[in-house]
Structure formats: structure tokens, C-alpha cells
Design a protein around this nucleic acid. Structure first.
Lengths: 209, 209
DNA sequence: GGTAAGCTGACCCGACGAGTCAAATTGCGA
DNA sequence: TCGCAATTTGACTCGTCGGGTCAGCTTACC
């Protein structure tokens, strides 16, 4: 067991550095599995059976365990590319907006867009894998962005005064649950409902637009 | 199997009529199981393990099968008392309201209240047991009420014009999913969020109140 | 060509809850 | 009180699901 563990660690380190002591076929499989995982996670979220990822990669399930140590290792090997980059980009871009009303609109719209396009995001937000430190960290960053936004918004009156960070969190989490367990609505319905939400939480003071 | 079936039918008929050919202990168990089921379904929804219902009733799981034929039989023996009465009362009361704005407010608030208080409602709305004709019928009645309400509301401008019956349906179903799979928020948070929803879907014409 | 790295099919595992049944119990009529 | 049919029940099977493992085969590499 110690041996397998070491091997896994080595692979995951290699994902960052480039010097590899892996055999050529193993290196190839790592890449095939990574890209198959990205595809599968995009389509069906982080809980897709590993068997399916393996099939898509043209390897056996056991190879995923050999190379990544299990689901969490695999997730951590692709989560940045799959979710974190986009999510952080949204957060970053939100911060650049001057008008607080715009910020709120953009943030909620963009997050909901991500949730719709990337089911994996929902698994992160729902903390489906609490054992992954990396996933929890992404989640934490999201919550932080939430609270930052709400603090700014409440001060400015762009949101109704009783609206809390918990409310925003619930909005996002409930949507994650709906997308995860329900049937996906057509995109235009989904976007329309995003607008209802926004109109329901905005303060009454801002009569602009 | 034919025998067991007949027996089950007899019990379920007895729930309506009163003449019983059941032995005294069986009759007592039927009542204990019914009331345990109501308690369990109230607390944990219609998917609670039958084992738990049995334990609460002080009988073994097999007795539930003897008396009710299985989960669906049991559900149908209590669903009226548990859900249908309240749900139909809400629908009926909605129809008595004159002001269309009030109707919408009342309906959505009351449905969401039911969903919060009675997890069983969510299992009905989510059609968790599509094999139960009775449950499907309740569900159908709910959808009908939805559509009736939306038709009236759109004509009057109390809702924003782009709001559809599908939107209302999604609102209710998404909430059902959130309650079923997520953590219940405190009641006051939940009610506050109900208000956000209402404010998000109302038409801009009604400036009353 | 030898050897260690790597791959894989076939396997086991645990969790879960529905549903079943032979055997024990018990209500009840005679 | 007896005897039997009705009833209950503990212990069982079943099916599903996916994670995880390993012996033995294959293959890259020196």
C-alpha cells in the first residue's frame, strides 16, 4: 500500500513539474485519462462513475487507481482547468466593476451560467467531496466572494436591506441542487428565471434602468 | 401471491368501509402502522425506510407488507390525511380570493409553507412514485391549479408578462429539490426568501401596497 | 532478453433497502 | 379448552451500485 501511495504522489507531482520517471505508456494514459475525465466531468459532474471515465480514456478502471489513486486524486488533477480558472475569473472580473448594481447582476448571472454549463461546479459548491482540501479551498474562496459582494451591496443600498450573505449562498446552493437532481431547463428559461431572481433581491432605491 | 394480493385489497377497502373481517390484532396493527407512517412521513418524507415505520409502530417490517402490500399501499392509505387535504384546501382557498395579486401571494406562500412543513408534499410534487395512480392524480391537480392561476394572472398583469406556468412549476419543483436534498433553512430565512421570489415575479404595473 | 513498470479482467467489498418465507404465535369459534 | 386458520416475525435473499484490489499478463526500456 505504501508503494502504491508513493507512485500516486509521484504522478501528481509530475502534473506540475515535467521531469517524469513514468514509462511512456503510463504517461500517455495519464493524459488520456485526464482528458477523458474533463469530458466526463463536464457532462455529468464530478460523481460520474470512474468506470465511464476509464472507458472514455480507453483504459481500465484500475489504471485510474494506479495513476491517480482514486476519484479525488483524479478530480484534483483536473479541477483547476475544469472549474477553478473560470470561477476565479468570474470573481476577479466582478471586482473590477465599479457600479455595485452591475456587480451583483454580473456575479449572479455568471455564477448561474457556470452552474448550468459546468455541473462540476455544483459538486464543488455542494461540497460533495469534503475530503478534498483543494475542493474545499475553492469553495471557501467562493463564499468569501459572496460575503465581500454582499457587504459592499448592503452598504450601497443596491440590494434590499434585509438580504444577507446567507441568502445569496442559499440562492446558489439551491440552484446547484436543482440542477444536480432535477431536469435541466432549456437555456432561455433558465436565464429568464435568473432575471426574476435578480429583480427579487435588488433594492428599491436604485430606479436606474 | 394471489392470496396476499386479495388480503391487501381487503385491508385497503376496510380503510374506507368499516366492516372488517380482520382479526383484532391485525386491525390494531393497521392503525398503529398508519399512525406511525404519518409521523415518519411528516418528518422524513415518503422515502423513509419502511423498517423505521415498522419500528415506530412496534411491529416488524413484514407486517407492513402483510397489511398494506408495500410502500405504495401504505402511502396511499395515509396520503389524503397527510397531504391531499391540505393541498386541496390551499387550492380551494386560492380560488376564493378576489384580488389576483393576493391570489398569487397566497398561493405561492401557502405552497411553500406546505413544502417546508410536510416533506411528503415534495415527494408528491417530484413524482417520486410514478406507479401510484393516486399520487399522480394529486400532482396533476396541483399542476392544473398552477396553470389556472397563471392564466388569470397574465390576463390581469399582476405577473410580469413573460412569466409562464412552467416558471411557476420550476419554482415549486426546484424548492422541492432543495428541501429534499439540502439542509432546511431556519423558518424565518425561508419565509424571507419566499418574499424575494414573489417580488421577482410580480408585474411592475401593480403599484398598490 | 531480462526485468521492473504498468495494465487489466475479474474479483470482493459494503451499504442500502425492498421484498419473502418457514416457523412460531395468537385470536377466536366451537 | 382445543384446534385451526389468521397473523406475526426474524432471518433471509435479492438486486443495485460503485469503490477499490490483486494476481497474472503485457510491455517499455536498458
Amino acid at each position: 500500500m505504501g508503494e502504491r501511495q508513493e507512485e500516486t504522489v509521484r504522478v501528481m507531482a509530475d502534473a506540475a513539474s515535467s521531469g517524469s520517471r513514468l514509462r511512456a505508456d503510463a504517461r500517455r494514459n495519464v493524459e488520456q485519462i485526464r482528458s477523458a475525465a474533463i469530458g466526463a466531468f463536464q457532462g455529468r459532474g464530478l460523481t460520474v462513475p470512474l468506470e465511464e471515465v476509464a472507458k472514455a480514456a480507453g483504459v481500465s478502471k484500475a489504471t485510474i487507481f494506479n495513476r491517480f489513486g482514486g476519484r479525488i486524486g483524479l478530480i484534483e488533477a483536473v479541477i483547476e482547468e475544469l472549474v477553478a480558472n473560470e470561477l476565479f475569473a468570474v470573481i476577479r472580473h466582478t471586482r473590477t466593476l465599479d457600479d455595485i448594481g452591475e456587480r451583483i447582476t454580473y456575479y449572479l448571472t455568471a455564477i448561474r451560467d457556470l452552474q448550468y454549463r459546468q455541473p462540476a461546479v455544483n459538486d464543488v459548491l455542494l461540497q460533495t467531496f469534503p475530503h478534498s482540501q483543494q475542493l474545499m479551498e475553492i469553495c471557501r474562496a467562493g463564499n468569501e466572494a459572496n460575503e465581500e459582494l454582499i457587504a459592499a451591496a448592503r452598504a450601497s443600498g443596491a440590494l434590499r436591506p434585509e438580504f444577507t450573505a446567507g441568502d445569496l449562498h442559499a440562492l446558489v446552493v439551491d440552484n446547484a441542487l436543482a440542477l444536480k437532481h432535477g431536469t435541466r431547463p432549456p437555456r432561455d428559461d433558465y436565464d429568464r428565471r435568473t432575471r426574476y431572481l435578480l429583480d427579487g433581491i435588488r433594492g428599491h432605491s436604485s430606479a436606474s434602468g
